[in-house]
């Protein structure tokens, strides 16, 4: 691989990795407070994609001017965040809370999660059709800058900036706010957290919503980069889950690191081993790392900052 090619694969790898990181945070947050993998999170992502697609399709003119383009992107971000947040909120209320009330075993939560996931993506297929749909043409996806000769498009830059802002925002929320303190306390010891006045049901619900906001936006950004379809959640969902485990499930900064790593691995895997191996590499890395560090790279802790 020439140095030039290296940068050509690095840029999309970092962009994809940032996206995986944002989705992985959704898995890791929920795991932190409930010790549960929300396998329906991939559908939160998918519905964020569809929500923004539908609204933007009805709003976008044939040739949007630059200010209109900016506005449309903002609308897309807000709508996808709301759709993702609402889906996650509903999932917690319908698929998990009743089980928690009854003190159901962990396996039952898992089955409920997978059932909810099947239900949602088949529902989306029925409602929105089973063919992939492109996002409407919001802007000309020109090259905005070059890094060591590698071209960076508007979409890639947008993706990176949004992902970065979300990660910084989330980090501040978890480490600096009252809700964040509640989330961390709940992750460490739910009962003692409630003795401090933490309303655990409410904090759990809000944790789902936060993960959903991020996941929904990731669905919109992913749709901009590729297409929107009812199965779009599957591969990014599984990869982001792997990223969360890789970084240390329950560890927010671990999820960010794991996502970035798997995005890069996936991107470089294509020139090195071929397109057909694209999704394999992530799992080879996962298995490899877990053999030596079963708790993931940064370990299984949400309460600790890093």
């Amino acid at each position: 691989m020439s140095p030039h090619e290296f940068w050509d694969y690095l840029v999309p790898g970092v962009a994809l990795g940032a996206l995986y990181a944002v989705i992985a945070i959704g898995y890791t947050l929920v795991y932190g407070v409930l010790q549960l993998i929300n396998f329906a999170h991939s559908e939160v992502f998918m519905l964020g994609g569809f929500g923004s697609l539908i609204v933007l399709t009805s709003l976008t003119p044939a040739h949007p001017s630059a200010p209109i383009s900016v506005l449309l992107v903002l609308v897309g971000l807000v709508v996808s965040a709301l759709c993702g947040g609402a889906t996650a909120y509903g999932l917690e209320k319908v698929a998990y809370r009743p089980l928690r009330r009854r003190g159901a075993p962990k396996l039952v939560f898992l089955i409920s999660a997978i059932g909810a996931s099947f239900f949602l993506y088949n529902l989306a297929g029925k409602l929105f059709g089973r063919d992939p749909l492109p996002m409407p043409h919001l802007y000309d996806n020109n090259v905005v800058l070059t890094v060591f000769g590698a071209r960076v498009t508007i979409t890639q830059l947008l993706l990176l900036v949004c992902a970065l802002l979300m990660m910084v925002g989330l980090d501040l929320l978890v480490n600096r706010t009252r809700l964040g303190a509640g989330i961390r306390a709940l992750a460490q010891d739910p009962e003692t957290a409630s003795l401090m006045g933490v309303d655990t049901d409410r904090v759990i619900s809000r944790t789902f919503v936060i993960g959903g906001l991020l996941g929904g936006v990731a669905g919109f950004l992913f749709g901009l980069n590729t297409q929107v379809s009812f199965t779009m959640g599957f591969n990014p969902g599984i990869t982001a889950f792997a990223a969360a485990v890789l970084g240390g499930v329950g560890n927010i900064r671990g999820a960010m690191l794991g996502g970035l790593l798997l995005g890069l691995v996936e991107s470089f895997n294509v020139p090195l081993f071929g397109e057909e191996w694209r999704y394999v590499a992530a799992f080879v890395v996962l298995v490899g790392v877990l053999m030596f560090r079963p708790a993931g790279i940064l370990g299984v802790k949400i309460g600790r900052a890093a």
Partner: peptide
């Protein structure tokens, strides 16, 4: 205010 059995401090904070 309740100081629980086994102290139960938030160990990672």
């Amino acid at each position: 205010g309740h100081s629980p059995e086994g102290r139960r401090v938030f160990a990672d904070m």
